[in-house]
Simulated scan of single mutants.
Amino acid sequence: MARGRPRQFEVDEVLQAALNVFWAKGYDGTTMADLTEATGLKPGSVYAAFGSKAGLFKQVVDRYVATVFSYGPNGLEADSVREVVHRWLTGAAESTTGEATPAGCLLVQGALATGGESREIAEDLCARRKAAQVMLAERLAAAKANGELSADVDPRVAARYVVALAEGIAVEAASGADRETLLSLVDLAMRRLPWEA
Rank of each mutant, 00 (worst) to 15 (best):
V84Q: 11
V84S: 01
A33E: 14
A166T: 03
V153H: 07
R129K: 14
L41R: 00
G72V: 14
I169Q: 03
V84W: 02
A145R: 12
R128T: 02
G115Q: 12
S80W: 11
L41V: 05
T114P: 02
S70W: 11
T90M: 07
S52K: 06
G55P: 03
A122P: 04
R160T: 10
I169H: 00
S95Q: 14
L185C: 06
F69P: 00
S175Q: 15
S150H: 13
V81T: 14
E99C: 00
E172V: 00
Y64P: 02
L136K: 01
L149Y: 11
A100Y: 11
A197F: 03
H86D: 09
G91V: 03
R179P: 01
L185F: 08
F50V: 03
R119K: 13
L89Y: 03
F22H: 09
E94Q: 11
L183T: 06
D178Q: 11
L107N: 01
G168F: 07
V65E: 10
T97Q: 02
A137C: 08
E37W: 06
G115L: 08
K25Q: 15
A100M: 10
K130I: 09
K53W: 04
E77W: 06
R191L: 12
V157S: 12
A17N: 12
L193P: 01
R192E: 11
A151T: 13
E167V: 05
S184T: 12
V171N: 02
V65T: 11
N20K: 15
M32F: 10
D62H: 04
R156N: 13
K130N: 09
V134N: 07
S80L: 12
V46Q: 00
A158E: 02
Q133C: 10
G55W: 05
Y47R: 09
E83V: 09
Y27R: 11
T39I: 04
V153M: 08
T31I: 08
L165S: 03
D62G: 01
E180F: 08
A131P: 00
E123R: 15
K42M: 05
A145K: 15
